[in-house]
Design a protein around this nucleic acid. Sequence first.
DNA 1: TCCGAATACTTTGACGTCCAAGTATTTGTG
DNA 2: CACAAATACTTGGACGTCAAAGTATTCGGA
Lengths: 164, 164
Amino acid sequence: MPLDFDPIDEAAENWRSAGWAAVDAMSAATSITRAHQILSGRIDAALAPLGLNFSRFEVLALLSFTKEGELPLGKVGDRLQVHPASVTNTVNRLEADGFVVRKPHPTDRRTTLAALTTHGRRRVETAAAALAEIEFGVAGLSADGRRSVDAAILELRSAAGDFE
Amino acid sequence: MPLDFDPIDEAAENWRSAGWAAVDAMSAATSITRAHQILSGRIDAALAPLGLNFSRFEVLALLSFTKEGELPLGKVGDRLQVHPASVTNTVNRLEADGFVVRKPHPTDRRTTLAALTTHGRRRVETAAAALAEIEFGVAGLSADGRRSVDAAILELRSAAGDFE
DNA sequence: TCCGAATACTTTGACGTCCAAGTATTTGTG
DNA sequence: CACAAATACTTGGACGTCAAAGTATTCGGA
């Protein structure tokens, strides 16, 4: 049951009326938050039948891009920009489902590798196809829209010190 | 410790190399996810000293825009597009902190109203100023960027049936 | 009027994320 | 070579979100 008005637009009007500052910033932030909600709902729904969620999928995809199909847990966290505790948790689930196994690092005994299993490699292919099928939840966003979102957010991420 | 490359761009390259489909969609979805992470981190940090997080703030703001400063919990959920259980939880916290009180609906005994207290009204003003101060986390995003994000996401939300 | 369906909220439980603290191992420096 | 500091991961606790089930109340059609 959709509302018969745009709640974000409505909120912006209210902010303006209340004399609150930074209305455009508020609107952009709320839009991004809501977009994330929509995407993550769609993506998780597409992945659920495969026993995955987006985090778990991202880990499998990342591993599948490496030569050996394995990576230290710390590297996984760095690349995906998630907390070490989340990596532990995610890999626990993937391991319980047989998609990855933990292996000791050959030279550094502090380090643990997550290594893709055959099962995991098959599953990530299936999942990638399923996500492509639903266009990663961004169906409804034009090619121009996708490019401009990418470009704008690149500014934001760069300013936030995400890289370089 | 930022990476010395853009992890999203890196991911897009990997996807292309692996021959996976919908690379532009993947990139847009990942950008939005990461942007949300950045914003919510900044916003929650700004609100934490006030005993709020973004959800709690949104509820207070919404109430402050009404004539009487009160609204049925169900309406709150509709406007903010969050699950009823989350509304219950959020209002519990706000009530425990004295920012709102629950009141019975005058005519429908199924319904509960959340009503702003004086304390809550003062706090939401302070919080709004604090958020304006950090530009809702979107500092680093140009005016053009904000507009194009808004416009693009409006497409997405509209297609997702968010309203009208 | 009666009663099944709808509505409104709460409760419980499964997850997921982060922080802070704890353990193990390696690094770097005097 | 020793040992404090840094690194790598795990654990436990606080929170937040959602789905499903439960309770109370109101609505609407026979």
